[in-house]
Write a protein that binds this DNA or RNA. Structure first.
Lengths: 156, 156
DNA sequence: GTTCTGTTGAGAATAGGTCTCAATAAGCCG
DNA sequence: CGGCTTATTGAGACCTATTCTCAACAGAAC
């Protein structure tokens, strides 16, 4: 239940590839696993710099790629132009609702989707590895704000 | 059943916004509605230049945005870094299977998803406007090619 | 035709990510 | 520990796709 497990997976993965456990690499690992939800590369970079860690952007990107390759981190574009990274919780894949007004991202788990994925992929001769479902719409807060404003300028 | 209808929607939309029906705008409309499947901005640009149309990239992007705003065109990132555009066929939303080896994109229609979208959005207080479901995996061709290669180098 | 103002083209600017390469430092061995 | 090999790093150049800027242009209304 501790991070130990994922850390071990990571260390083994790095070794298997003939890689090295550098200080920067392990710090980035800790950094992303201490965040919850989505982070973008730049935020990780800045957050580490703020802590006085000397690390370069290139290293952040390189090691994020490594984490993605070993399956511990998922990289996605959720509407915006930049990639967002989040750690994978094995066995409990989730998807995202995105508010098109405030860009808020809400995670949800829908058991139905995996089955749907398998079925659809099979029907087209695909061997599915993963899916991404993004539902965009307007969240409660923004809907409230919008209707207030509309009411205020109602006149025609 | 003719394009006329969509063209009319577009013209009305432009007028409602106080916009003008410029030659470039209408040519881009024709161009994208003559393509089937997905196109990226650059391909539209080059295709129009090839036909001797004088148009700039900026204009292509600006008018694609207009088409997206008026709901006739959908803009998505299907894995790659660039946006892909496709015309919307009202009432028959589809989603995409993407081969992670050859980047091939296959469209599919799944009636179940709209219902799922509504249900999930409601559960989280969202007013859903649209969804994007991308399933990535390996297509038949690539799977075949991969297994052949694996067999060829089988020895351990 | 004139006027008003939205639109265009060309290229500069931006954003986010990737690449280069000399310097550094894991990991391994004695 | 000290040395060696080579993966990794940092800084900044580079790349690509898209957006922005602004003077010139051209729809639309009269």
């Amino acid at each position: 239940m501790e991070h130990t497990t994922e850390r071990e997976i990571f260390e083994r993965y790095v070794h298997r590839r003939g890689g090295r456990l550098t200080a920067e690499r392990l710090r980035l690992f800790d950094e992303i696993f201490n965040q919850h939800g989505h982070v973008d590369a730049d935020r990780l970079y800045r957050s580490m710099r703020r802590q006085g860690r000397k690390i370069s952007r290139a290293t952040v990107y390189r090691n994020l790629e490594l984490l993605v390759d070993c399956g511990l981190v998922r990289r996605q574009r959720l509407g915006q132009r930049r990639y967002l990274y989040e750690h994978v919780h094995p066995g409990q894949s989730h998807d995202h609702l995105i508010c098109r007004m405030c860009d808020r991202v809400v995670e949800f788990v829908s058991p139905g989707i995996s089955a749907l994925q398998r079925e659809l992929a099979r029907a087209h001769g695909f061997d599915p590895t993963e899916h991404t479902l993004q539902i965009s719409g307007i969240c409660l807060d923004c809907a409230g704000r919008a209707s207030t404003e509309t009411a205020a300028s109602e006149e025609s």
